[in-house]
Design a protein around this nucleic acid. Sequence first.
DNA 1: AGTCCCACTGTCAGATTCTGGCAGCAGCCG
DNA 2: CGGCTGCTGCCAGAATCTGACAGTGGGACT
Lengths: 232, 232
Amino acid sequence: MSRSARLLDLIQLLRRHRRPVSGRTLAGEMGISIRTLYRDIATLQGQGAPIEGEAGLGYVLRPGFMLPPLMFTDEEIEAIVLGSRWVAKQPDSRLSAAATDALAKIAAVLPDDLREELDASTLLVGPAAGAVEGIDLSLVRQAIRNERKLGFLYRDAGGAASERMVWPFALGFFDKVRVVVAWCEARQDFRHFRADRISGLNATDVRYPRRRQALLREWRTTLDTPRSPPGG
Amino acid sequence: MSRSARLLDLIQLLRRHRRPVSGRTLAGEMGISIRTLYRDIATLQGQGAPIEGEAGLGYVLRPGFMLPPLMFTDEEIEAIVLGSRWVAKQPDSRLSAAATDALAKIAAVLPDDLREELDASTLLVGPAAGAVEGIDLSLVRQAIRNERKLGFLYRDAGGAASERMVWPFALGFFDKVRVVVAWCEARQDFRHFRADRISGLNATDVRYPRRRQALLREWRTTLDTPRSPPGG
DNA sequence: AGTCCCACTGTCAGATTCTGGCAGCAGCCG
DNA sequence: CGGCTGCTGCCAGAATCTGACAGTGGGACT
């Protein structure tokens, strides 16, 4: 096995462990010596991998995605840049910053001429139109990722307000509004909540009893009836 | 210099040449032997780089972007996925396909669990609203990339139609419309053309006499007056 | 046809790099 | 303190890479 392949294997191995793992264990599972493992870890860290080692504990990989060398066509990179620019204009400030960071990371590793081409890319995105939410959408995304219950006050189309406790599992981006898709505990059914009508967001630590992907799948089947599907 | 670094250098070296280059020349510029160059080329091809060699001619790199190993945070990859999904819903069919392809390429190199997470990603994009153009936007993007003149029939807001020959250098994506930004030969000034009002597109082979990036820069300065800037 | 240039492959000795084991230092914990 | 761990320097053997040579086959030009 070549060294570069082994480095990718090591990343994946680290990903599988959530608790800190000792270098000795990792070396054992990889079939290499501890000394080599330390060298590999150092190499990966040098490539930007967020691996943290602490004496007496072991190694942890902060969550993230490691992409191996990848080749994109002109149009594919145009699509990625345009898409990231669109995200960067969205009102969700953390996601917007993440899109900007991702573009900066890509630009950082490009040779000068390509970076210039990327910076001066000719696909532009207009300013995000539509309502601005009063809530922090990053809290909603976090609740979705961690499968936590979410409480809030909802003002429906008629103007009536109600307290809700929901299991959020998706976030829809439409032209003008963001929509939280969730299982509503009170109604015992799937519900869509326009983000601009949500207030008093309460991101709880309570895990909801279903898997996010299962909820998503189930919700999709309910869309086969001719309601307009937000798609994915 | 490590081998992996040399491989990236080789890619960049190939990028700088537009005409086919002989292996002997490349080896000379890299400071390595021809034999090693052949081995490096083979390695790069194995990693997916579109390098083509033909006996009697030399090597050519089909245009594209080679990204070295890269680390993204959860939120950054969420942003890229969401953005690409948005692009995939745009009416420009080629760009849309490119976005889908880019996501597929990323998914292909991910370990199973991450790929599943990406597929079942919970940020959804609503259907693209707004007018559908009758023209092929990929022709416009191609004209922009290659700095070619573009002819078409334009029907302005008042309904009056006119023949135009323009130097396109940017494409703006707004909520409902796509806008071609170009230098208009008839008006001798920058003009914006809504794509849904363009018909009879004529993508010429005539290169226009200015650099696209210079036009873009110049156009941006005209936006410092308080017109609303489409931004970038 | 003949010639030149070129991509591409096999082989092999020498240069280079990688690897594993050892020793040693420092930080954390019970 | 002792046990566990991360981390570094060192060095000999293993593995890999490199350069040189020889040879094959394809395309282009004369």
